[in-house]
């Protein structure tokens, strides 16, 4: 009798939780289960993807793995994927995510490689990621979620995304705005000063990270994976922050170490006609679509015009300045 009462109360208590699980399965904002089409793909992409690109892209990789990937932070996402596919005749998968850190980029490579061996991996990188303190740890938990539906159903991001997908489907309006709540000039200054301090105010050479990069290159070689690093450009205002924070030597060291990696490294992040022109940038850290097209053309088709190859000769030149 007591046992039956307990089971009854337990079932009643669990009811809302079961209802929630059903709701998540039906809305499925990140196409985890990939069978419910109650809500449009567009609504999911506009809401879920903008809310958490990492989850969106990692789950996309799980469902539709590709042997060619582009990995990096929001600047990687600024590369025109369709254009790249067109000029290369391949099907690149974007594994970018907002504010992705270098350690996470490396983890993403292994994640994707586990699902399907990678033939070509293009990483975007910048000195502001090459810092011991530029660290985050999100990939592991998303990877665990990819393998466990319970984790998907009880995740704050998924709940939020589900809410926005439903809301935008009902109101027919995109719920997530990416427009900063300030004028363009104020936002520009905010990025240079506040973000500059965040990126360079606390710097330490990332020995572990560089070792992980070397290990990645070593692991890629036997399986014939072609690795490319694009040192993505920052606008000159942001580039000057490196000097402001007294990190010129560390910056050179970064370029030298990239040159020594033994893979194709193409550098766009130096003072040139493109990076000194604000019009080429959405903000000091993000190049615009046209500039992205130019970078993509140089990297994937050639020849290099603005981009320069960082190779052994470059490493030797850097070493002269450093020591």
């Amino acid at each position: 009798m007591e046992f039956r009462r307990f089971i009854k109360a337990g079932a009643l208590f669990a009811l809302p939780l079961v209802a929630w699980m059903l709701l998540v399965v039906l809305v499925d904002p990140f196409d985890y289960f990939n069978f419910s089409h109650l809500f449009s793909e567009q609504a999911k992409k506009e809401n879920a993807a903008s809310l958490n690109t990492l989850v969106f892209n990692m789950l996309k990789e799980k469902h539709n793995p590709s042997e060619d990937v582009i990995i990096g932070d929001s600047r990687a996402e600024n590369l025109p994927l369709q254009y790249i596919d067109k000029i290369t005749g391949r099907d690149y998968l974007m594994l970018g995510a907002n504010a992705l850190k270098l350690n996470e980029s490396i983890e993403l490579f292994y994640y994707a490689n586990k699902i399907k061996p990678i033939k070509r991996a293009v990483f975007t990188i910048n000195f502001n990621e090459f810092n011991e303190y530029a660290y985050a740890d999100r990939v592991t938990s998303v990877e665990a979620m990819a393998g466990n539906p319970l984790l998907y159903m009880f995740d704050g991001n998924i709940a939020q995304a589900a809410f926005y997908v439903v809301k935008s489907s009902v109101t027919k309006q995109n719920s997530i705005s990416s427009v900063p709540p300030m004028s363009q000039d104020a936002f520009w200054n905010y990025i240079v000063t506040v973000r500059g301090k965040e990126h360079y105010g606390r710097y330490s050479y990332p020995y572990d990270l560089y070792q992980q990069m070397q290990e990645l290159v070593a692991a890629a070689k036997p399986q014939g994976t072609e690795i490319t690093f694009i040192v993505v450009p920052n606008e000159s205002d942001f580039q000057s922050q490196v000097r402001e924070f007294g990190l010129t030597d560390d910056y050179l060291r970064f370029k030298r170490d990239m040159s020594n990696l033994g893979v194709r490294v193409i550098d766009f992040d130096y003072l040139n006609a493109m990076t000194t022109n604000r019009a080429n940038f959405l903000d000091p850290l993000h190049y615009n679509h046209a500039y992205g097209m130019m970078i993509a053309k140089e990297v994937f088709q050639g020849p290099l015009v603005n981009g320069r190859l960082l190779d052994q000769s470059w490493a030797a030149a850097c070493s002269k300045f450093l020591f």
């Binding site: 011991e132 303190y133 530029a134 660290y135 985050a136 506040v194 105010g201 606390r202």
Partner: peptide
């Protein structure tokens, strides 16, 4: 505040 918040950088 800014200087203090930067002290916590790199902790994930």
């Amino acid at each position: 505040f800014e200087a203090t918040s930067i002290q916590f950088r790199g902790m994930g």
